[in-house]
Each structure stands twice: as structure tokens, then as C-alpha cells.
Design a protein around this nucleic acid. Structure first.
Lengths: 213, 213
DNA sequence: TTTTGTGAACGTGTTCACAGCG
DNA sequence: CGCTGTGAACACGTTCACAAAA
């Protein structure tokens, strides 16, 4: 299988969500055109994305909604459960813990760690916050979430990797170094705000592409 | 000025942060090479990015840290304050309210709205949660943050636009439609988790670029 | 000599356009 | 005929490589 680009993976997530909606509407089949319309992209893009994983459609007809949904689910690895460790029991960490949506998608938070003595021992949902030092022993998880202050982020990343994390989601506004083979995604809200600030500071002439719509 | 790409804007944010660090270290000058190293990109990229706004460096020497920091600050529109309205006083909304980092960067949250009767009237930091209906009157803000459940997201976006929002940061996992001229950024955590799930589900051979490092 | 600024070359992702198939 | 699947064309972003300047 050829290499899959990151934009393609992001769009797969979107398709998956649209298919959920469409399935709920009871529609049995969807064309690349309709799927594209809901996304604001071209139908060719939809077909290209899907064709890199196989031929899921029927010419002259479109894609069978349930079938395509199942395929994408498998492609994204959502046909299994992932164990997630959250480090940082502050506002973002607790927000993640409280959000049920992740559990529905197959992501189970199995532990929360923090270094703040005040937070350790506290109950957060079904979990009790533990000291970060105890992270070392652990090896029964796949994903780590970094929701700590920025100064601790790289150290926590190293700890997570040492404990066997295969993927990390980082909320600290800093580029992290992780070994090849460990997947890393960063959500940097500060950067998003700054992106908006930039867009609003530009002379209001040119049409920006990704920014609008 | 030629059109600026979104990746360039994101990198500007990074440069800005690196310059803060470097300034704190007391270093007066930085070369594109060193700036690139901290970012994990090439020095040519740094120079290209910066050169689309002007000639800030000196050949044979590098960039004067304070000067460059000030320039980028102005480019990003961070030399003024932005008034932000948050809609949704749930976990994400409160987390944003509680995070002081945004205030430091020039973003002031001036109001919080929610439709949940239990939350309306509650105090969140210095603000009191107000009913979403009251949003209509308001016009003394530039940025709106959507931190509501996904089903309300598009309606809230429309309300924000009607109230005069020029930019929107959306935390709901849904593509939103906004008129051209209104800047939109979406932070979709579900999608990030799914991206990690995908990466971990791939046969562990090929080296992915953006995902690692 | 060092390092910037930048046209040219390159690589990657998107769109076009049509052959292939139902 | 309608819609998918896909090579070819295109657009865009990144890297190279070097002339220009300090």
C-alpha cells in the first residue's frame, strides 16, 4: 500500500462522521459527490482518498453507506479499543476525562497522573490521580496524552515513550522530540488563536482558502 | 504582499515562541540555521517564511532577536488586544477561561455564554455565565470560541457571525460554514485521536514524516 | 568567510478529465 | 447513462544552490 498522507487521514475521519450521519438518516448509498459536498471538497478528492485503500464503490451507483463506514472504521483502527494514559490533571486533563465522546470512539482513559501534590489522590470520574513517578512501571497502554504545563512536556514525553507509549497527543505549546516509530500529534491552541489574529490583521482583500469555510 | 500559506503562519507562531526563549537566554542574534534546528525544519524554510514579509536579517550575521520578535509580533497581530467571546461553559470552555496563557498573548475573554440553565448565572473566574440569547446584542468583540456540543455548533457559529465575529475558533468536531471574510479554525480532538489510531494500526515499516518528531 | 534572500528544481497533494464498468 | 477509479496536468509548498551583502 502506498504511503497515506496526513490530509487524507484527516479526511477519513470526516468521512467517517458524515457516514454516521447519513446512516442515521437511513440512506443506503452515497456518491462521492454528496460525500464531498458535506465536506466542502471535490468529489475527485473523495474518490482518490478512498481508492488508496481499495475499491469500495460501485460504478454508476456510489458507495454503500454501511459497508464504507465499516471499511473506514477498520482503516482508522477504530475496530478495537485503545488504552490512554493522561498526564496532567489540570483543566485540559480533566476536560478530556469528562468527555464521554472518546470512550464511544474506542479510547479508554485507564489512568491519570500529575505531579502536583494537591491533585494526587483526588478522584476524577472513575479514576484517582497518581504521582507521575508511578508512570514508569506501567506498560498496559498505547496512547499518552500530555496535558501538563509546557516546561514539563518534553520530560513527560520521554517518560511516556520509556513506558512504551506508541502514540502521543500533546496539548503543550511546544514541539516535542520523540523517537521514530512513536506517533505524535500536537494540539496547540495558542497557535490557533494566533492564526486567527493573523488572518484578522491582514488587509481584507484576498480570499483565504483553508481559513474560510 | 504575496499570499501567505497557512503552514507559514503556523511556523511564524513557532518562531515567535523560540525567539522568546532565545531572548530569555540573552542571545542577541540568531541565524536561520539555529532557528530551524529548534523547529526541526530547514534553514531555507525559515528564510523563505521571513522573506515573504521583508528583509529582517543581516547577511553574514543572522537575525537580531529582539527586532525579529517585534516584527513577527506585529505580523501576527499580537501588538494589540483581541476581545474573545466563549460560547459553552462546559469543560473545554472553563478550561479556556482558566488558562492565563491567552491573556498574556493579548486575548481577553470578555464574556461566556451557555444555554444550560444550571450554568447560567454561575461565576467562572471574573465572569458570570450568561444565556446564549443575550449574545445577539453584543458587538464589542472580534473572536468567538465555540465550545458547545456538536449539535449546537453551527447555530452558535451563525449567531457569532450575526453578532459581528470576525474570527471563530471551533472545538466541536464538525465542519462549520461561515461567510467568506470570517476566519475559521477548528480544533478537533477526536480527529487527532483517530489520526494516532490510524498511525498505530499501520504495519510498522514506512517512516511517517509529520507524525514523527 | 558567513549567512541572508531568492529563483529554480523538486516533491507532494489536489483537480481534471476520461476510460472502464455497472 | 451514471459514477467510480485513476493517469495526467496542475498548483502549491519545500528544498536546493548560489549570487549578493556584510
Amino acid at each position: 500500500m502506498a504511503r497515506i498522507s496526513e490530509p487524507t487521514v484527516r479526511r477519513l475521519s470526516h468521512y467517517y462522521r458524515v457516514l454516521d450521519e447519513v446512516a442515521a438518516e437511513g440512506r443506503p448509498v452515497i456518491s462521492s459527490h454528496v460525500l464531498a459536498e458535506r465536506e466542502g471538497i471535490t468529489s475527485a478528492q473523495v474518490r482518490k482518498d478512498l481508492s488508496s485503500f481499495g475499491s469500495f464503490g460501485r460504478r454508476g451507483l456510489g458507495y454503500e453507506v454501511q459497508r464504507l463506514r465499516t471499511e473506514i472504521r477498520a482503516i482508522l483502527g477504530l475496530d478495537r479499543r485503545w488504552r490512554v494514559v493522561v498526564v496532567g490533571a489540570g483543566h485540559i486533563g480533566s476536560a478530556l476525562l469528562a468527555y464521554r465522546g472518546f470512550g464511544d470512539q474506542g479510547f479508554d482513559v485507564v489512568a491519570v497522573y500529575d505531579n502536583d501534590g494537591e491533585r494526587v489522590g483526588q478522584r476524577l470520574g472513575a479514576l484517582v490521580v497518581r504521582p507521575v513517578a508511578e508512570l514508569s512501571g506501567r506498560d498496559d497502554f498505547e496512547l499518552g496524552v500530555i496535558a501538563t504545563p509546557v516546561r514539563a512536556a518534553q520530560d513527560v514525553a520521554d517518560l511516556l515513550v520509556a513506558a512504551g507509549a506508541r502514540g502521543i497527543l500533546n496539548f503543550a505549546p511546544r514541539k516535542l522530540r520523540v523517537p521514530a516509530g512513536v506517533a505524535l500529534r500536537t494540539v496547540d491552541m495558542t497557535m490557533e488563536f494566533e492564526g486567527l489574529s493573523f488572518a484578522l490583521s491582514q488587509p481584507r482583500a484576498r480570499r483565504r482558502r483553508r481559513t474560510s469555510r
